[in-house]
Amino acid sequence: MCSGLIRISMLNNMAHTLLIPIDFKVESLKSLKLVLNDNTHQKLNVVLVYAEKSSGSITDMLFYSPSKRVSELCSDIFIEALSMIKNRYDSVIGELRIEIFSGTTVGALKNFIDAHRVDEIVSPSNYELEMPSRAFDVRPLFKGVSTPIKNVSWQNQKSLSVHEQLIALFN
């Protein structure tokens, strides 16, 4: 019983890292908001992951920079929404990163999870990630890894205009 208590307090003290798949739409941040809402940990690190196969072209690969690609994909409204969530949970969120996962196999995902020290995966269960061209939905790969998965769901909002996207984060 004693050891159990110690384990819980240790868990609470250590930063807990979450992996959340996104599609750079504001609504995909809803899973982040939901998981932060009923969070019990003191500190959370968040890795937002966008799955995109790397291009086959030599020149593209030569000048490939993940951070540049991320800033290309980030729309103004997405950054705004992210900063809104960050301001709301300022004391809980330790580190918030956006990463691009360019592997296609479970093994690659395992490596990715190890590299970012992910403790838990948050998977939106009824939200359809909008993945154009080389991007793909990473969720099927989650079944192959041993990391605990937390499913979140919310009522989907259909076709929102750019200005209305922010509404998705509320209610």
């Binding site: 908001k33 809402n37 809104m84 969530i85 301001n87 709301r88 949970y89 300022d90 004391s91 984060l169 509320f170 209610n171």
Partner: peptide, 8 residues
Amino acid sequence: DFSLLPEN
């Protein structure tokens, strides 16, 4: 709706 009211 204060669900995203900033802490600071």
